[in-house]
């Protein structure tokens, strides 16, 4: 009897450790928010062109346009129009606008009169296949830098879409790409404003 209780206790402890580590692994802490930063001081932001790591040449521009529109629609910041951002990039002489250096951020912020700059990397934008099932997938990571010092004050990433259990069982091509893009952007905005 004593041996059975000891055996049960041993297995319960193992199960508990597994459950706890499993939970810890399911929510990776990839996101960063500078807790000392006063985000209310940011009135206007410039969204620089995103770095495109996908095979679709215009995918980054599509996602950036959606992000800029949805960020403006949130009414949290005033988002500079892309034409104005482009003018700032030309005037500041940014060589790689998607990955600017600290000096370049300071320089462009003076031209555009913004308190923060957002850069992004589009990691996935396309269709994924598994067997006969296929679906659209978008993966995006963003960084916000304040322009006084050029430090990163917020960073987050999100991946949406992909093949669901329903897609595997019933077929279908998943959700339209624009819909998946909106989901990714919504997820990132939720992380920014939480």
């Amino acid at each position: 009897m004593k041996r059975t209780i000891k055996f049960l206790g041993y297995w319960t402890s193992c199960l508990l450790i597994l459950v706890l580590t499993g939970c810890a692994m399911s929510t990776p802490q990839n996101d960063y928010t500078n807790t000392t930063m006063d985000f209310s001081a940011i009135k206007s932001v410039a969204v620089l062109p995103f770095q495109n790591l996908t095979s679709d040449d215009q995918a980054a521009e599509r996602v950036r346009d959606s992000f800029m529109g949805m960020l403006l629609a949130s009414e949290a910041f005033y988002v500079l129009p892309s034409g104005e951002v482009n003018r700032g990039i030309s005037r500041a002489g940014l060589r790689t606008p998607s990955t600017p250096m600290v000096d370049e951020i300071k320089s462009i912020s003076k031209i555009l009169e913004v308190q923060a700059v957002i850069t992004g990397t589009l990691r996935e934008y396309g269709t994924v296949r598994s067997g006969s099932a296929e679906a659209n997938l978008v993966s995006l990571s963003l960084q916000m830098m304040e322009t006084e010092t050029g430090t990163v004050i917020w960073s987050a990433s999100s991946t949406r879409g992909g093949i669901s259990v329903g897609d595997r069982l019933l077929g279908g091509g998943g959700q339209p790409m624009n819909k998946v893009t909106e989901q990714v952007v919504n997820d990132l905005l939720d992380k920014l404003f939480k």
């Binding site: 521009e61 346009d65 129009p81 034409g83 104005e84 951002v85 482009n86 003018r87």
Partner: peptide
């Protein structure tokens, strides 16, 4: 190249040029 900037909007809005109160533009994907 990326839609109108404020500088180009200023030109279109100038009373001596077009006098446009609103400048509408966009992107077609």
């Amino acid at each position: 190249e990326a839609g109108p900037s404020l500088a180009s909007s200023d030109i279109l809005a100038d009373k001596n040029i077009l006098g446009a109160d609103l400048v509408l533009s966009g992107k077609v994907f």
